[in-house]
Design a protein around this nucleic acid. Structure first.
Length: 1040
RNA sequence: GGGCUUGUAGCUCAGCUGGUUAGAGCGCACCGUUGAUAACGGUGAGGUCGCAAGUUCAAGUCUUGCCAGGCCCA
């Protein structure tokens, strides 16, 4: 028997293919990347889709330092899958990747290099320094480019230059000449439309290095500060007990006393006034002094001030302090020339507590972020008392020239002199010291101070003219105020009304004004008119909020997030005192403080950037920009650089608009921005503001966000936890396609986890899909155009083939729907289920008999293979966006002359699946058949347990149909569907049944056909132990 | 501390406006096959739906609090 078995084994048409079962992806993928580069796949795709409608995903630029991590991988894979999907749906979907090249982290790296070489950055020519930064950034651009391509991302990666050295096409970078020029132009647009203004902001400042520091350059170290308790005599108050008393404040920065302009209290704190009745030796307080402090802190203050006894005169609530005005402790000082005779008003501040100090906080708006912000709210003066090196300026009474820190960062006279002056004036209650965490420069290790410095802002909300009025009123510059009123009157000519929110904002704005300011305002401005001008111009905030509503956010919750941020954010500070970036490129009139707005000058600047890059700002002479109309001596050249977020926020302008292959000046909103959810604060945000400010609308129609990659347990990845997953390693171990499949089967809208079990899971999914492709290729061995049957007349096909075509149609529809609705998460799962359910477990399983054993010339077998070819045709295309390497490999193994001749699967579109294939009635019918089949399997399983049968072909079954199913008995070959040797149908009694009645199984009678393995009575009649069908196929055909 | 947000089987995910014994795929166990063979088919075991109160005739689904995560701010 084994002889005959061997004899017939060769007559079985088993699947045959070179497409290996195991992917060996780590080795094959890089070869494929090289091939794609060599054949210029991206260029070919562009050529092939030249006439198609554009669909544009605009790439958000990663920062060009360091190897890529899982977050990059997730992001770029998603972009690639989505882009390829739209491309294959019939669009022209170019992908131009980009990099963010300027900014602090790179600057540090180069600085660090200098430090290690014992050099100081300040001794290096800025142009040399920038050249090194540029080189560093480019190195990482090149590395990351390789790594992204290794992921299978197809895009415009090649940096090509034309004869003049100008880049043609290729990825974008914020540091190219054109990029820098356009960024400067965008800044100038804000200058032109009035959005840009010069204001002040509290920054951390090093008096040793004489420069502002970014938060990330700051180290917090222990520092010993001198602390003082100072007395501010009450001048005016509605609290009786407070009259004639001194409010006591506590501070760790005595040098800020000359810059004091206010006192903060908290509504919720309980305060009291105490009369000193007895003091210990060394106390600085006189008996009879009346001091006011928070009740909760009375004991501490008493001890510190060496007061042995004091009596409480009365209590009051913080909320009643409003309206109280104090005198500066140095008021009336004989040598101060009245310099400290101004009033010090008390105001409410949430951040004041009664845990430390006195419950009252002294406010120097120029020297603390809270002081500054609240000081602005209450209209407190921004003083300008300190020079860059931390010495008091000439105009500061008593302390001019004294430095607060010496060149080594040690406390100096500027810190001590104010203490001494107050002590002499009898206004020092006590003195002490405190060790606490304090910001230091990570370079010089010197302690830092807060300093309010001039910065450039883009206005979000309040009309900038009104803002200027306010600034000028508090500074007392009345002439300036009057000029502004004229501007407003001019603008009043174009007034449009009708915004309630803006109205309320305006009222709030007025509330901030001091009575004096209000008086000036009323005297000079018709309030109604002011209201009109304010309401007439929608603010940047208004425009941005409207744009948010007009954008589709996926998932939708992203909208809430960005809306809340835009609603609440302050004006955008776009200036940085740094070297590696795009200079803001402005000139300010030294006399008037006005920013020069001459178009010719601005154009000369941006032209120079275009030709030489923004290095021109340093390399060229200011007069070259200013031309003949202005003198460089009269203008301050602004060397601040622009916030990198402004740069990346401008990419829609210098990438999308300017490129022929993208917007080409015609598309001002791209289809999609796609980044991590942190970019609500970052790129989505800055791009929105930048675009709303210059174009009045968002740069995008859709925004899709993804979550963060966490470790297996859902914790953030960190070096210290040792749970970091490296995509580069992972690709070496498993391959990029595994990573891609993992991405697409996860719910990337949320944070997603990665670890051993998720990777194993993904590997299993991958193998199933790969094997489906492999089986298809095996089954299509030798298939050619001649064998292909005409699929236009579906009725001629067996129902099962019709069903599969219907399923292809359904799958195609779902796929396109998911893509259009940005539901890519469902796509991979659906494809996997399709392979698993419809193909492997059903169609393939049933059709194996036909494929292996039927006559190759039979119509049925040809029909089956023709349908298989359609399945293959669809599946390779459908999988291409996700399993880009595997689909390409499978496509390369296709039978010749049957499919289109695209050199790469990525040059294809999704096949056009005709609607005529749709057949819901048939699908419904077969849904019923499948459930009956499941019952048969259940019964067979029982027999198998009892050892009656092993293979299902050893069984015959009888299926009892319900009355309404009776037709199925005639139409369906149940033996084929259930993969048994023979099947009968009968009528089921009654309306209900249990499994025993529904299906009856028995051991098949007869002998096993050595060729097709069915057990049939007829086999006994053949010498070779084969069935009639097999006999026909093998012997009769051969004979004929 | 604030804004937004997540928590359903070992893993990845479904569960619409509250309504019968909470679903799928993978994995796992077992069986079959050895002609998709480091593959394929079948059967089955896995969940007090993060925890605790509450609203309701009825809650995974609504409310509140708590716990554990995440992003962005302070």
């Amino acid at each position: 028997m084994s002889d005959t078995q061997d004899k017939y084994k060769d007559t079985v048409f088993l699947p045959k293919t070179d497409f290996p079962m195991r992917g060996n992806l780590p080795e094959k993928e890089p070869e494929m990347v090289a091939k794609w580069q060599e054949m210029d796949l991206y260029g070919k795709i562009r050529q092939a889709s030249a006439g198609k409608p554009k669909w544009i995903l605009h790439d958000g630029p990663p920062y060009a330092n360091g190897n890529i991590h899982m977050g990059h991988a997730l992001n770029k894979i998603l972009k690639d899958v989505i882009n390829k999907s739209w491309q294959m749906m019939g669009y022209n979907a170019p992908y131009v990747p980009g990099w963010d090249c300027h900014g602090l982290p790179i600057e540090w790296k180069i600085e660090e290099k200098y430090r290690n070489a014992g050099k100081d950055k300040d001794d290096v020519d800025p142009l040399d320094f920038r050249a090194e930064c540029r080189e560093f950034a480019q190195e990482w651009v090149d590395i990351q480019s390789e790594q992204f391509q290794r992921l299978g991302v197809i895009g415009d990666w090649r940096i090509q230059e034309d004869a003049s050295g100008e880049q043609v096409g290729g990825p974008y970078r914020t540091m190219t000449k054109h990029g820098e020029a356009q960024i400067a132009r965008e800044i100038h647009k804000f200058l032109d439309n009035g959005g840009l203004y010069r204001g002040v902001k509290s920054v951390l400042w090093s008096t040793v290095e004489q420069t502002a520091l970014a938060e990330a350059e700051v180290e917090y170290q222990e520092h010993k500060s001198v602390t003082i308790w100072a007395r501010f005599p009450v001048v005016e108050t509605k609290i009786d007990v407070l009259k004639g008393a001194d409010v006591v404040i506590w501070t760790t920065t005595p040098w800020t006393i000359p810059s004091n302009r206010g006192i903060f209290y908290n509504d919720d704190i309980a305060y009291a006034v105490y009369e000193v009745t007895e003091v210990a030796e060394g106390s600085k307080v006189e008996v009879g002094a009346k001091i006011s402090i928070a009740e909760a802190l009375a004991d501490k203050v008493q001890e510190q001030a060496k007061i042995t006894s004091m009596t409480k005169l009365g209590e009051f609530k913080g909320v009643d302090v409003e309206g109280t005005i104090c005198a500066h402790p140095l008021r009336g000082h004989k040598d101060a020339n009245g310099g400290y005779d101004y009033d010090v008003p008390a105001h409410m501040a949430d951040y004041v507590t009664d845990e430390d100090g006195t419950g009252f906080v002294h406010v120097a708006p120029s020297h603390g972020p809270d002081d500054f912000l609240l000081g602005q709210k209450y209209g407190l003066e921004i003083t300008d008392n300190l020079d860059d090196d931390g010495s008091f300026k000439e105009h500061v009474p008593l302390f001019a020239g004294l430095k607060i820190y010496d060149e080594n960062g040690k406390m100096d006279a500027g810190n001590f002199a104010p203490i001494k002056a107050m002590e002499e004036a009898g206004k020092l209650l006590a003195k002490g010291s405190l060790r606490h965490e304090y910001p230091h420069s990570w370079r010089s290790k010197a302690p830092l101070i807060f300093r309010t410095t001039p910065q450039w802002f883009i206005a979000m909300g309040e009309n900038q003219y009104l803002k200027k009025i306010l600034d000028n009123i508090t500074l007392g510059n009345l002439q300036e105020v009057k000029n502004l009123f004229e501007i407003i009157d001019e603008a009043l000519k174009n007034v449009v009304l009708g915004k309630e929110n803006a109205f309320y904002n305006f009222l709030r704005y007025l509330e901030k004004l001091s009575p004096e300011a209000m008086a000036i305002l009323e005297a000079n401005l018709n309030l109604k008119k002011g209201l009109k001008i304010y309401l007439s111009e929608p603010t940047l905030r208004d425009v941005a909020l409207k744009a948010i509503e007009e954008t589709e956010w996926h998932p939708e919750k992203g909208k809430n997030r960005i809306r809340a941020m835009i609603e609440g954010r302050p004006d955008w500070c776009i200036s940085r005192q740094r070297a590696w970036g795009v200079p803001i490129a402005l000139f300010v009139d030294k006399k008037t403080g006005e920013t020069l707005k001459d178009e010719a000058v601005l154009k000369r600047i941006t032209d120079a950037y275009e030709e030489h890059g923004s290095d021109a700002w340093w390399s060229m002479d200011a007069q070259e920009f200013l031309g003949n109309d202005y003198s460089a001596d009269e203008y301050e050249q602004i060397f601040d650089i622009v916030d990198v977020w402004f740069e990346s926020g401008s990419t829609h302008s210098f990438v999308v608009n300017d490129r022929e292959d993208l917007g080409n000046g015609e598309i001002d909103q791209v289809d999609l921005y796609l980044e991590g959810s942190d970019q609500h604060r970052g790129w989505f945000h800055s791009s929105l503001l930048e675009s709303c400010g210059t174009k009045g609308k968002a740069p995008y129609k859709n925004v899709l966000t993804h979550g963060f990659v966490l470790d297996e347990k859902g914790y953030k990845m960190s070096k210290s936890l040792g749970n970091v997953v490296d995509p580069l390693k992972l690709m070496k171990q498993s391959g990029a396609d595994i990573l891609r499949l993992w991405t697409m089967t996860s719910d990337y809208a949320e944070d997603i986890r990665i670890g051993q079990s998720t990777m194993k899971n993904t590997g299993d999914l991958y193998r199933r899909i790969r094997n489906t492709l492999r089986f298809l290729l095996g089954a299509l061995d030798g298939f050619n155009a001649a064998e292909k049957v005409d699929l236009s007349d579906l009725s001629k096909l067996p129902e099962l083939e019709q069903l599969v075509l219907h399923q292809l149609y359904e799958m195609d529809q779902k796929l396109r729907g998911y893509i259009q609705n940005y539901e890519f998460g469902k796509l991979a799962k659906e494809l996997h289920e399709f392979c698993n359910n419809n193909l492997s477990a059903f169609y393939f399983d049933i059709r194996k008999d036909r494929l292996y054993c039927d006559d190759p010339q039979s119509f049925e077998r040809k029909a089956c293979r023709s349908v298989m070819a359609e399945v293959y045709n669809c599946l390779t295309a459908w999988l291409a966006p996700i399993l880009s390497f595997t689909a390409e490999e499978a496509w390369a193994h296709r039978p010749e002359g049957v499919f289109d001749d695209s050199d790469s699967v990525h040059l294809r579109d999704f096949p056009n699946v005709p609607k005529t294939w749709q057949n819901p009635a048939l699908a419904g019918k077969w849904f019923g058949i499948r459930s009956i089949r499941e019952e048969v399997f259940y019964s067979l399983e029982l027999d198998r347990k009892e050892k009656i049968i092993s293979s299902s072909l050893e069984a015959n079954v009888t299926i009892n149909l319900k009355k309404e199913e009776l037709a199925l008995g005639e139409e369906i070959d149940w033996a084929e569907v259930c993969i048994v040797s023979a099947a009968n149908t009968g009528l089921m009694e009654g309306d209900t049944y249990y499994t025993g009645e529904r299906v009856e199984t028995e051991k098949a009678e007869g002998e096993k056909c050595v060729r097709c393995w069915k057990v049939l009575p007829e086999v006994a009649g053949h010498v070779d132990h084969i069935c009639n069908r097999c006999d026909d196929v093998v012997n009769k055909k051969q004979a004929a």
